[in-house]
Design a protein around this nucleic acid. Structure first.
Lengths: 241, 241
DNA sequence: AAGTGGTCTAGACCACTTT
DNA sequence: AAGTGGTCTAGACCACTTC
């Protein structure tokens, strides 16, 4: 009922409040959030206004509505989320989740291009993970994953090896870092010697190069990922509208 | 007020009716459609129900709302639509619309893979257009555009050469074919001799290969496009959420 | 001033899930 | 039966555009 001094619509303010609660961990991934009626009482607005806020958060994949049950915080540890950030599809047959093999794990001072993307000060420390993803034992993706130290304090290679499933599910369960959106920049490149060896192709083989900047709640950038994809039997799928 | 026998929500039925009017050309791209109040009277439902139908169509980029003015049919002949289906962005600097040069135009019997994608009978006729897109006189994209004969009857190379701007705008103005969605399959490949010559790169140079199936109203497939992109100074941009 | 889309409310009823 | 999200309505007022 009360108009805020910012003049943004009420439902946007409610949306911001809900996002704040999500970011502060009041409701964790996979959990049930309060019902629309409860939230409308808590915020002192009508149910319809809460509804519109939740509608948008649901469209942005932050929340998931289930009729009769309630509204849940989205999680990467669910079958339905497994292909949200993995757009690689086999030319024939169904999408399948790959196996992961960690090639390298290091703590180090991050290079300048990474700190710039992650909005850190030059020279700050972090981690880099190299891994190979394989479909049916066929190496297909070489990933280089750059992380800032802060949110991932205590990350170890033992943890990584013990985890099977989406890395974003691991980040969410272990570090309360929930990936919410990402921007990808895609190019075609030639495989260098190292890449060719790890992926089992010839040097110079054309690879799909995918550079991703991922963001957590509050649009905070928390991961830079560089992927090299072998696309003779797979393709990157994108829907336009 | 009246429940249809299909049991789909009212606003979905209204949405379908509006899409039907769009598909039949009752309202053309760029035109103003009737106001929400008018539509609610016409369909015998409340304004809120019409509103929800238009909300979805607006999210799907079929309609554009403008406060105080009304709701308009989306068009490709507008600056805001120019980069909806062109995701190529320069590494540095602002997106810019390319110049197009037609390399080849032919009427022919379509190959089997094209007729299958376009859901035509084997051996049906159509057109193929080859063109090169250049940014600041630098050839960057080689496109091969396959069209069915039916919707594009009368298409000629003179028309194509006379048109500057997005091809989808031309299709919309000249043939009432409005592209509404598309699915892209992206790979990395090596340039063959022909492609290398047209794009001014060496044979074997890595190219981004983009195969697109575009659909008009009613999800009717009406174009297959194969593009080879030079990505040493450009990237394909994609947002995930 | 009149017309448009945008927001907000209150209340009714439906469909689904759980108890 | 009770609680949840999903749909639909009717009416009020706001913000923007045009006349």
């Amino acid at each position: 009922m009360v108009r805020s001094p910012t003049f943004s619509p009420l439902y946007q303010q409610i949306k911001a409040l809900i996002m704040q609660s999500l970011g502060q961990g009041e409701w964790k991934p996979g959990e049930l959030i309060p019902s629309e009626v409860e939230l409308s009482l808590r915020f002192g607005v009508s149910q319809g206004t809460v509804r519109k806020a939740i509608d948008e958060l649901s469209n942005e994949n932050l929340l998931v509505r289930r009729q009769g049950k309630g509204t849940f915080v989205a999680t990467h540890n669910e079958a339905r989320a497994h292909f949200r950030f993995l757009r690689l599809v086999p030319d024939t047959g169904e999408p399948k989740y790959p196996e992961s093999r960690i090639v390298e794990f290091k703590r180090l001072r991050l290079p300048a291009d990474i700190t710039r993307l992650l909005e850190l000060k030059a020279g700050e420390s972090g981690f880099v993970i190299s891994r190979v993803l394989s479909f049916n034992a066929k190496p297909t993706v070489l990933d280089e994953i750059w992380l800032p130290l802060g949110p991932f304090k205590g990350l170890s290679i033992e943890q990584l090896n013990a985890w099977s499933g989406p890395l974003y599910g691991f980040f969410e369960s272990t570090f309360d870092v929930c990936m919410v959106s990402a921007e990808e920049r895609i190019k075609a490149v030639s495989a260098d010697k190292t890449q060719a060896d790890l992926l089992g192709v010839d040097q110079g083989f054309p690879l799909l190069y995918v550079e991703r900047l991922s963001r957590a709640f509050g649009d905070k950038p928390v991961e830079v990922r560089r992927g090299w994809y072998v696309t003779d039997n797979f393709y990157y799928k994108n829907e336009l509208s």
